[in-house]
Amino acid sequence: MLGLALLGSGRMADVYGPKINAHPGFHLVTIYNPRLASAEKAVARHGGTADDDLARVLGDDRIDAVIIATPTDTHLEYVQACAKAGKPVYCEKPLDMTLERVDKCLDALAAHPVPFMLGFNRRFDPDIRRLQTAVRDGEIGALTFLMSWSREPAPPPIAYVRRSGGYFIDATIHDIDLLCWIAGERPAEVFASGSCLFDPAIAAEGDVDATMTVMKMPSGCLAHVNNSRACAYGFDQRLEAFGRDGMLQTRNHRDDNLVRWDDTRTNASMPLKHFFLERYDASFYHALDEFHRALTEERAPSCTAADGRTALAIALACERSRREHRAVEPEYV
């Protein structure tokens, strides 16, 4: 059984803590936060011991690997420290918010090679994985369109928006990674537009809460993403792959999937899964399982730091496209 240190004790610690405890190949040794009181509160929920000394955590022989679940602007510091200490890393997405800082992460991993996995957890959602496999197996022939709908129930707090890096980096990056992974290619150009339709405070920060993005792949396949920071009926998450020989779709998840037909309704009565914590609950476990299998099988995890750089380059191109009102080529190099 591999011992883990969990860096961070906020919302994402409450996602990963239960998944670590449920996995037969992991056990939670330490929760780290430079604010010890916060780490102690997380330990009360998930177990392990609390620590506010990073050097002590990374020097602990009981720690076989580290999960970084801290704010994005701290990832570089922690990746560098973990790599130097020789500890394998699972890091929440995005790797960082600028390509310059991501490149410093890559430099650290090159100087101190350790297994590294980026937490694009949606790749590990069972429905999405089946769609991706079917596309790669040629079940619908050559792809022509890929479409992703990703709409959140309500706008986040403004304090979160200010640290998010913007809507494309914070949210659309999930869709970008998924569509590139499904298509097996990355876009030659992107065109994105956005509006602020739900929360004027987001507009005051120079950000948007509704976006549409089109990515043109080298094969000619067109990938479309629409995102919204608000959705009256819950967490709307759908994918569609349209090919020359057919179509594949993933549908929304509900607590009650029974469809009722009468003189007042022709649909399921329950609302959609409220947010990503519920909708993608299983995906976080499966992502950690991939990390565990990569470590025990001594192979590279399937979602890499390079994947994170690619997704960020595309997200930054989307933001540039929105601001400049034109198609933009992502800066991959």
Rank of each mutant, 00 (worst) to 15 (best):
R122G: 06
L6A: 01
D14A: 01
L4I: 13
F120W: 04
D289V: 02
R229T: 08
P113L: 00
T304P: 13
T266M: 11
A110D: 14
D60R: 08
K19Q: 10
I202A: 01
S164T: 00
P200H: 07
R326P: 14
A287Y: 09
P330D: 15
D199K: 04
D53Y: 07
R123Y: 15
L295A: 06
R151K: 10
G48E: 12
Y90N: 00
G48W: 09
N121K: 03
I202H: 04
L36Y: 05
E297S: 09
L7H: 07
V208T: 11
A134C: 06
T304L: 02
P155Q: 01
P113G: 02
V79T: 04
K93W: 08
D236H: 11
K93C: 09
D199M: 05
W261C: 07
I128P: 09
R129S: 08
E298S: 05
P271L: 12
P271S: 02
S164L: 00
L99T: 10
P187R: 05
R254A: 03
L131C: 02
L143M: 15
G220T: 15
V190L: 03
H174G: 04
T49E: 14
A154T: 14
A192R: 01
N227E: 12
R293K: 02
S283E: 11
A171L: 08
L109S: 05
L131S: 05
A188L: 15
G246D: 06
R186A: 13
I68M: 07
M212R: 12
H224T: 15
R129G: 10
K273N: 12
V114S: 04
I31W: 03
T98C: 10
T310N: 14
V29P: 09
C196K: 06
V29W: 06
V328T: 07
F120N: 00
M270Y: 14
